[in-house]
Amino acid sequence: MLATIRHPASAAVQAPPLIIAHGLYGSGRNWGVIARRLADRREVVAVDMRNHGDSPRFPTQSYPDMAADLAEVIESFAAPVDLLGHSMGGKAAMHLALTRPDLIRRLVVADIAPVAYNHDQTRNAQAMASLDLTQITTRAEADAALAQRIDDPALRAFFLQSLDLRHKPPRWKLNLQVLEDEMPKIVGWPGTQGAFDHPALFLTGAESSYVRPEHRETIKALFPKARFAKIPEAGHWLHAEKPRAFEETVRVFLEA
């Protein structure tokens, strides 16, 4: 089963558990602050998706496989639960909602649509894999080495959260070769059919181009009770850029 980080409710439980599925190259640990804040009235569980973090390594990264992983976690609780997925995790959450709607009470999809995209994240996997980790002893050294391939310091900082410096030699807590090999599936969409007839929130960054107006017809066909909201001054990483606005919007939707 997937590795999980559990945040028990800090007060009397008033709602089903919330499961959080992160995006590509992320981990459950990335969601620590938001998860803890949302755990005031419910248990919150952040997972490490397959081939990420402390979860098992597999040769595939398809959305049916990732959805099955999430179903296994959810079935260890008293379903239905609430499910939040960002980017790759959002696509896995949508596939699960369409194929196993009995497992999910409310769905939050963060800055992704059920469509195939043209962008390619392969170069980032290649950049991380190119580091000679036998020569790395500090995060600053890793950042300097990664800067030769990736200009954006915020993006490097995000990737470096998955570098395990306590291991000797350091290692990536990402199955980079499989993620590179499976990139067409990750940026794609398996054409999943069905209808999730429960509340769904499609929450996007106002400055992101991932969920465009032309995607709404497809979203509404698959998620007829979909609602749409935008976080001002936020891009694709809306939960990291505007965490309090993201948290409050999710809270209002889940508690409606």
Score class of each variant (00 low, 15 high):
Val211Ala: 02
Ile219Gln: 04
Ala144Val: 11
Phe77Ser: 11
Asp143Leu: 09
Pro199Val: 10
Ile186Lys: 09
Ala256Cys: 02
Glu217Phe: 05
Gln177Ala: 14
Pro8Ala: 12
Ala226Tyr: 09
Val115Ala: 13
His86Trp: 06
Met1Arg: 06
His86Val: 04
Pro56Cys: 05
Gly23Trp: 03
Pro243Gln: 03
Arg166Met: 10
Ala140Gly: 09
Val44Asn: 05
Arg57Cys: 01
Val187Phe: 02
Asp143Met: 10
Arg227Ala: 11
Pro243Phe: 00
Val108Thr: 00
Asp164Asn: 09
Arg212Val: 14
Gly191Ala: 05
Ala127Thr: 04
Trp31Cys: 04
Thr249Leu: 04
Glu43Cys: 07
Pro17Cys: 13
Ala3Val: 08
Glu141Pro: 07
Gly26Thr: 00
Asp152Leu: 06
Ala125Asp: 00
Arg244Gln: 14
Ile219Pro: 03
Thr204Asn: 04
Ala113His: 03
Glu182Cys: 06
Arg41Asn: 06
Arg216Ile: 05
Val211Met: 06
Glu182Arg: 12
Glu180Tyr: 13
Glu75His: 08
Asp181Ala: 13
Pro114Tyr: 08
Arg139Ile: 06
Arg29Gln: 13
Thr122Arg: 15
Ile231Asp: 04
Val47Pro: 09
Asp143Asn: 13
Tyr210Pro: 07
Asp65Leu: 02
Leu146Ile: 13
Glu247Trp: 09
Arg57Phe: 00
Pro56Ala: 11
Ala93Cys: 07
Glu247Asn: 08
Ile5Asp: 06
Pro101Tyr: 08
Ala157Glu: 11
Arg156His: 03
Ile219Thr: 04
Gln14Ala: 15
Thr60Ala: 13
Arg216Pro: 01
Arg123Glu: 14
Tyr63Met: 09
Val252Thr: 15
Glu214Tyr: 06
Arg50Cys: 00
Ser10Glu: 03
Phe158Gln: 05
Ala145Glu: 10
Ala229Val: 06
Ala221Ser: 14
Asp197Gln: 14
Thr60Cys: 07
Asn175Trp: 03
Ile19Asp: 07
Leu131Lys: 05
Phe228Pro: 01
Ala110Trp: 01
Ala195Asn: 09
Phe228Ala: 12
Gln148Ile: 00
Gly32Cys: 10
Ser10Lys: 14
Ala144Asp: 12
Phe253Arg: 11
His95Ile: 12
Asp54Ala: 14
Ala46Pro: 12
Gly191Asn: 05
Arg123Ala: 15
Lys230Cys: 10
His7Ala: 08
Val45Gln: 05
Arg156Asp: 00
Ala206Leu: 08
Ala147Ser: 14
Thr218Met: 06
Ala206Asn: 04
Pro153Asn: 12
Ala79Asp: 12
Ala97Met: 05
Ile74Lys: 01
Leu163Lys: 07
Val187Leu: 04
Leu222Lys: 15
Val250Cys: 09
Met183Phe: 11
Leu179Trp: 10
Ala125Arg: 01
Val13Tyr: 07
Lys91Ala: 03
Pro213His: 12
Glu72Ile: 00
Asn51Gln: 11
Thr249Pro: 01
Ser209Pro: 05
